[in-house]
């Protein structure tokens, strides 16, 4: 054995250096790689919790329905029944957590409606669209329509009626080629 290592001291030194280098690498890795890195993949596992930690701003429609049963009842059977409360009333998580902390603002009763119901060529035909110039009277839409149940009890409009005329403000929207293909 002694014979074997007689002239090989330099090899031992190199080996010792390699081991020392490896130890330095392990120490540096332990310091530099953040905790949880690689637990699920090539990323820091804690980032999932960071993304989850953001506070809520929208409470969700269930939170609204839990307290405001009267509105749920008022909307029943209406085309507006499936719309979330916060679509019109804005984000209300603060109100849901503590009703006195934030009172929802009453949305503008003309601009808000027209945001969805203004005539627009790109708007699909299933949604009722009006030209505010010749539909109804200037002023809030809620003068005639209830916001939570906007359908008015009127006889069904005649076929081929033009939407938004003074004579027949609730006529069916004109059929589009896209609509025919769908059916």
């Amino acid at each position: 054995m002694r014979e074997l290592f007689k002239d090989k001291e330099h090899l031992v030194r190199v080996a010792a250096l390699a081991v020392a280098g490896f130890l330095v690498f392990l120490l540096a890795k332990a310091r530099l790689v953040p905790a949880g890195f690689g637990a699920y993949g090539h990323f820091r596992a804690g980032a999932l919790d960071d993304n989850r930690a953001r506070p809520l701003v929208f409470a969700g429609r269930q939170a609204g329905a839990d307290c405001h049963e009267d509105i749920v009842k008022a909307r029943h059977g209406s085309k507006h029944a499936a719309i979330g409360c916060e679509t019109c009333h804005g984000p209300l998580e603060k109100h849901a957590a503590d009703p006195s902390a934030l009172t929802p603002e009453r949305p503008d009763q003309r601009d808000l409606c027209l945001g969805c119901h203004h005539e627009n060529a790109a708007r699909p035909a299933f949604i009722r669209q009006v030209n505010p110039q010749d539909h109804g009277e200037p002023g809030p839409c809620t003068a005639c329509h209830k916001a939570h149940h906007p359908e008015m009890e009127e006889p069904a409009p005649a076929a081929g009626a033009v939407v938004g005329t003074a004579a027949d403000p609730h006529g069916a929207p004109p059929a589009q080629p896209a609509q025919e293909v769908k059916q």
């Binding site: 993304n51 989850r52 930690a53 953001r54 506070p55 929208f58 969700g60 679509t87 984000p91």
Partner: peptide
Amino acid sequence: YHRITKGLTTACCE
């Protein structure tokens, strides 16, 4: 991600 992991839908879907 902070909503869907709590059983809510996204803000845009809401």
